[in-house]
């Protein structure tokens, strides 16, 4: 009997994580289907970046499991973890380009480190990726010579350099003009479909996310408050989800970081 083909690239079960005394996640379950684009949305500061770091094994959860291609990430030793990471890639929220290298070398970095390809093949690979994000002409610039949006696109080219099995994009659309935004949206979809990889997209841009995601998670209050296909979420009956999808400031989702009563604090604690 053939082995059943696993359906999910990443499976998160009963995951809890806290920063100091502040819980970020309590017992959440999430699954990211193979070969699909899964979006994660949620208010700022809720722990989306943290979730990507948990999947990447950069921080360890308090409890629960994160299974990526059969490996339970939190239990892996250092060596194994580095091996597993070769199959994933992450676009950092800040871009995180290596400041001592040109755009070209940034994109070529992982290829040079992990393969023994000759330099002319690397050149072709890098130029292809740079062309895809519209930065082929900027290959000799240093990161400090790029604008914020260009830096993020360069980082995107770097993240896809080695065609990984899983790509995590942390806010890929932030700071992009409508044209680049459209290009990036299509690029993410296209990469996902043509290479059959799994994409996790963290973003606040509801229409863009809805246009490419196969499945969406909305998280708030340390848990998943809504999940489903974009259409299901648009029709979701939960007021929490509706507030988020329509971007209303007032509603069940608190916009403010947990604090004392506003008026009370302004008056110096006098009730």
């Amino acid at each position: 009997m053939p082995e059943p083909i696993p359906q999910y690239s990443v499976e998160i079960e009963q995951l809890s994580f806290s920063r100091g005394d502040r819980p970020i996640y309590t017992d959440i379950n999430m699954r990211f289907p193979k070969g699909k684009v899964t979006a994660i949305m949620g208010p700022s500061g809720i722990g989306k970046t943290t979730l990507l770091r948990l999947i990447g094994g950069q921080i360890k959860p308090d409890s629960g499991s994160i299974v990526f291609r059969g490996h339970n990430i939190p239990t892996l030793g250092r060596k194994k973890l580095y091996q597993v990471r070769q199959d994933m890639s992450m676009l950092f929220q800040s871009g995180a380009l290596f400041t001592d290298m040109s755009v070209f070398d940034n994109v070529a970095f992982a290829i040079r480190e992990h393969t023994k390809l000759p330099e002319d093949i690397i050149r072709t690979m890098v130029l292809l990726k740079l062309e895809a994000v519209g930065l082929r002409g900027a290959r000799d610039l240093m990161p400090h010579e790029l604008s914020g949006g260009m830096a993020r696109r360069a980082a995107l080219a770097r993240a896809i350099a080695l065609d990984p099995k899983l790509i995590m994009y942390d806010e890929p659309f932030a700071g992009q003009d409508p044209i680049s935004m459209g290009v990036i949206v299509r690029l993410i979809k296209q990469l996902n479909d043509s290479l059959g990889l799994t994409s996790i997209v963290v973003s606040h841009d509801v229409p863009e996310v809805m246009s490419i995601a196969d499945f969406v998670y909305i998280i708030a209050d340390q848990r998943v408050i809504g999940k489903g296909t974009p259409q299901e979420l648009l029709d979701h009956e939960s007021p929490l989800v509706q507030q988020f999808m329509q971007g209303l400031p007032d509603g069940p989702v608190p916009f403010h970081f947990k604090a004392e009563d506003y008026h009370c604090e302004l008056l110096g604690g006098v009730k």
């Binding site: 990447g56 580095y82 990471r85 992450m90 950092f92 995180a96 290596f98 400041t99 970095f109």
Partner: peptide, 11 residues
């Protein structure tokens, strides 16, 4: 985050 991104590139 250059060190973090290096880690995520398995370097």
């Amino acid at each position: 985050e250059q060190l973090s991104s290096m880690e995520m590139m398995a370097i």
